[in-house]
Amino acid sequence: MHIPDAFIPLDQAIVYWIIVIPFIALSIRWARQEMDDMKIPLLAALAAGIFAIQAMNIPVGMGTSGHMVGAVLAAIILGSPWAGVLLLTLVLFVQALGFADGGVTTLGANILNMGLISGFVGYYTFIGLKKIKLSMPIAAFGGAWLGLFISSIACLLEMTLAGTFPLVPGLIAMGTYHAIIGVIGEGAITAVAVSAIAQARPDLLSQFSDEAVTT
């Protein structure tokens, strides 16, 4: 879902930068309040892991592939959607400047979609699903799927405003592809990773235990 430079005119690309910069600043404020001996290595491991997994494009049929975004997983593991904003900002910068994956002018839009929208929608969906007593993997799956899907719709709306995509055909194409990518690439991997962490290091996810979220 990395938007290349050519897909959004420069003036609009700047608007997305202006929107996203205060949120990047808030994610730094979160880091200043949270970074400790435990969360620093988690942030580093997630930065490397998200970068690497985004290189793994999974075929989803119809001649299309997709990869995990990872903001929801990062938000769940670090206990805040701001973690997703900070990590995706770092990952997207390195991808754009180092690997020509996503444009440089469109970084603001890409951070908005994949960091902010995907992370916040996914994290709070996860919390909501936990509150109605769904299991950890199911809540993680639901949050990750919806986070990816809604961010793809945001991306489509940006494409439409840019005059790059027509609204209805764009909505059908983006929605269809990302509904599937969300199941395989985002939902399933997030659910498996969260289950594995719940087994190996339940302390990391203790704030999401059934007792913690319903009280």
Partner: peptide, 9 residues
């Protein structure tokens, strides 16, 4: 294969 955004494009 192209990703979701490229395929949609």
């Amino acid at each position: 294969n192209p990703d979701g955004l490229e395929s949609a494009a």
